[in-house]
Amino acid sequence: MHAILGAHGISVSSDFFLWSQGPLQALLPHAILVCAQLGADGSVLRSEAWHSAVLDPVQLRDINDTRDGQVARLAQAWRAGGQKAVVIGQVLVHGNVVAGGGSFFALFCTSLPDPARQAYVLELLLPYLHLHWLALQDRVRLPMAGPAASRAASARELEVLHWVSIGKSNEEVGQILGISGGTVKSHLQRIYKLFGVSNRTQAVSRGLALRLLSH
């Protein structure tokens, strides 16, 4: 719960880094966390490594290369193995496939004392990794015209949209996130304006189309 609640404040890259090196690191110790965006065919479109130690640039290129790098090979093995949280060598991997693409995460670990438990924890945290990494305001921009394209959806807005997408009312979302139903409504109004839609159903459909939500 500490890791999940700690993810709520993520809005920029530095927030994500601190979360990955704090609450996430406490649950899933790792030397390197690699986050990758997947294309419709499952290929790695881009990847980014998060780490506190200084790494050799050659090593980073070998990890991040979208065609022949370690993450590309790991993503291929993960897909072939049934897309489950699993340990491949010393790397804990899992991903989230949505319409038109998805995300993939690889944690390069120095030790794996309990691989089954660590895979289970990664499965629990996967929605938050997916949501907040793709929502980073300095990394993701919504592909649409008009003034709304000048900013990305915030992490809080995407949290609200996530709970709305699974049928929660404004009051229920407020209870989950620790805010009022009126505040949830305000977040939804901003989402409507940002997405260029007029209701909850359209907002959820738009979020799915933009790969900001999973099915």
Rank of each mutant, 00 (worst) to 15 (best):
residue 69 G to F: 05
residue 46 R to L: 02
residue 77 A to P: 03
residue 57 P to G: 06
residue 79 R to H: 14
residue 52 S to W: 04
residue 44 V to L: 03
residue 84 K to V: 14
residue 75 A to W: 08
residue 79 R to G: 00
residue 49 A to V: 04
residue 54 V to E: 10
residue 54 V to A: 11
residue 54 V to M: 05
residue 82 G to W: 09
residue 74 L to M: 10
residue 65 D to Q: 06
residue 48 E to Q: 11
residue 83 Q to G: 06
residue 49 A to L: 07
residue 55 L to W: 14
residue 76 Q to A: 15
residue 45 L to A: 12
residue 84 K to T: 14
residue 82 G to E: 11
residue 50 W to H: 13
residue 55 L to T: 00
residue 40 A to G: 07
residue 76 Q to M: 14
residue 63 I to K: 07
residue 84 K to R: 15
residue 64 N to I: 09
residue 68 D to P: 00
residue 73 R to M: 10
residue 77 A to L: 13
residue 66 T to Y: 02
residue 75 A to V: 05
residue 44 V to A: 01
residue 73 R to N: 14
residue 54 V to P: 00
residue 52 S to M: 02
residue 80 A to W: 07
residue 78 W to E: 03
residue 61 R to E: 09
residue 66 T to N: 09
residue 73 R to H: 12
residue 45 L to P: 00
residue 76 Q to T: 15
residue 64 N to K: 11
residue 69 G to M: 04
residue 84 K to M: 10
residue 57 P to V: 05
residue 59 Q to G: 05
residue 83 Q to I: 01
residue 79 R to S: 10
residue 40 A to C: 04
residue 50 W to R: 03
residue 56 D to Q: 09
residue 58 V to H: 12
residue 82 G to H: 12
residue 74 L to F: 08
residue 73 R to Q: 15
residue 53 A to P: 00
residue 68 D to T: 11
residue 51 H to P: 01
residue 55 L to V: 01
residue 55 L to M: 11
residue 71 V to W: 10
residue 82 G to C: 10
residue 42 G to K: 02
residue 50 W to N: 00
residue 81 G to Q: 14
residue 45 L to N: 10
residue 75 A to L: 03
residue 66 T to H: 05
residue 57 P to Q: 11
residue 68 D to F: 08
residue 50 W to I: 12
residue 44 V to K: 03
residue 83 Q to F: 01
residue 75 A to H: 07
residue 40 A to L: 00
residue 75 A to N: 12
residue 44 V to I: 12
residue 72 A to T: 09
residue 52 S to G: 14
residue 76 Q to I: 08
residue 40 A to E: 08
residue 45 L to Q: 14
residue 41 D to I: 02
residue 70 Q to W: 11
residue 74 L to V: 05
residue 59 Q to H: 11
residue 78 W to A: 04
residue 66 T to I: 13
residue 42 G to H: 01
residue 52 S to L: 05
residue 59 Q to I: 04
residue 52 S to A: 13
residue 50 W to F: 15
residue 58 V to N: 06
residue 50 W to P: 01
residue 68 D to M: 08
residue 84 K to S: 11
residue 49 A to E: 03
